[in-house]
Design a protein around this nucleic acid. Sequence first.
RNA 1: GUUUCCGUAGCUCAGCUGGUAGAGCAAUACACUUUUAAUGUAUGGGUCUCGGGUUCGAAUCCCGACGGGAACACCA
Length: 503
Amino acid sequence: MSEHLSEQEIVRREKLAKFAELGIDPYPAAMWDVNATAVEILDAVEKIKAANPNPEQPIHELDIYKDVCIAGRIMSLNSKGKVSFIKIQDNTGRIQLFISVDNICPGDDKTMYNEVIKHLLDLGDFVGAKGEAFVTKTGETSIRVKELKVLSKALKPMPVVKEKDGEVFDAFSDPEQRFRQRYVDLVVNHGVKETFLKRTQMVKTIRDFLNANGAVEVDTPVLQSIPGGAAARPFTTHHNALDIPLYLRIANELYLKRLIVGGFDWVYEFSRNFRNEGMSRKHNPEFTILEFYVAYKDYIWMMDFTERMLEKVATDMHGTSELTVGDNKIDFKAPFRRITIYDAIKEYTGHDVSFMTEEQIYDVCKSLHLEVDKTMGKGKLIDELFSAKCEKNFIQPTFITDYPVEMSPLTKKHRSKEGLVERFELMVNGQEIANAYSELNDPIEQRARFEEQVKLMERGDDEAMFIDHDFLRALEYGMPPTSGIGIGIDRLAMLMTNQASIQ
RNA sequence: GUUUCCGUAGCUCAGCUGGUAGAGCAAUACACUUUUAAUGUAUGGGUCUCGGGUUCGAAUCCCGACGGGAACACCA
């Protein structure tokens, strides 16, 4: 251990020795039987205060929280001679401990107060306290502590963030530190934890909604020998016993479809996917997608279902379908606008590319100063055009429909429009949130599409798909008509919690 | 990957045109029995990210590396 210890870290280690001298275990094994939380006590006292016009009356006489046992992390220490104030933070929030030498050391031995409380405790330590709830002279709900126990000593100092009148002092704000040491960020910064909890709530709402509609949650392989189901570069790894290369999945689509082949009518998975590409506020190499596949449905049904589900998520989380994201007000009230990709391009560029050849579209891209090259097929050019010129304009939830077949190798041909497929993407706040289609279930056609991908790969497209022969075999056994969707859970959570960064 | 900005105490930051470092909070000691960013007094704390170069002298100027932020690109 050649780690450099700061002065403060050395001091804290010395305090461990001091604890040993006093016979106090700074990391006790026995459970500390908590019977109340900070917010619970604060709320209860608020209610009593509201109902009781006589503020002089001690709270404990109202028979509330006479014997509180709580625990938490020390967030501020304030010793005022023979009285000390310690603010602790538990799972719910912060509450103040009021400690006087007389209460905590009724006998002659004042060690607990003079040594432990005044000298050995530090910010960041976990302590347990027993006592009664009351309100101090200055009106702050506190615990009058009769017994205090060290539950865990912290050896590194926490950043001390102070706040007054909404102004924050010495904020822990370095983005590197915040993302790398998320645990510190969670302890010290308000709101981070809430965002985590909201995301969990969002996932639960979605899961409940799917379950209520008869969907079955499944798990499919993360390590795959052929990464399929999306256009992206995979991470590679290696299986030692088999001595074969393996890939971390870029999508779980092909495995969920295999389950449809196997006879499930509706399967879903919250799938952690890995894509070997850049990071940004909107991109994370490791991210979560909800995918689900429903037999006997088509992409039109899927649009109806998706907008109902998202409206429910928004209203469950905010009480209304309308929410504020950054500077935008976004309304998740169904139905959402629907527009074809060609109409979208026409709307924002003035060019109708629907009947153009690859050459002509290439020229349009050039005329709009887009960076395109000859390795790009027609599908990729159109995708380029859309993401550069249109994507950012769709703030309100909008389904972009009917993509060209070239950019959708797993999608069924459009029932009536030549050269297109039955696919939609959902754009919200200028970002893609979901991607869905009527799934291609014709094995001959699917094989031909894969072969197209191989040609693209030979032209230099390193994101083109591999041929998955086992998947083709599954389709040959027969897959019912199916509609599937992938929803970016991290991006949806960004919207629902009004966060600017995906991290 | 490109452009751009940044890296100084545990945290947040100051340090002008080169003269080997400062503040607040945190820490240590003392005082104080109701504090709210508590206060007062005193004390300690730094390989100025790293490596080269210019110079009598570099936190400061130059080059390079490493780490990071932001934008763009990649990414449906």
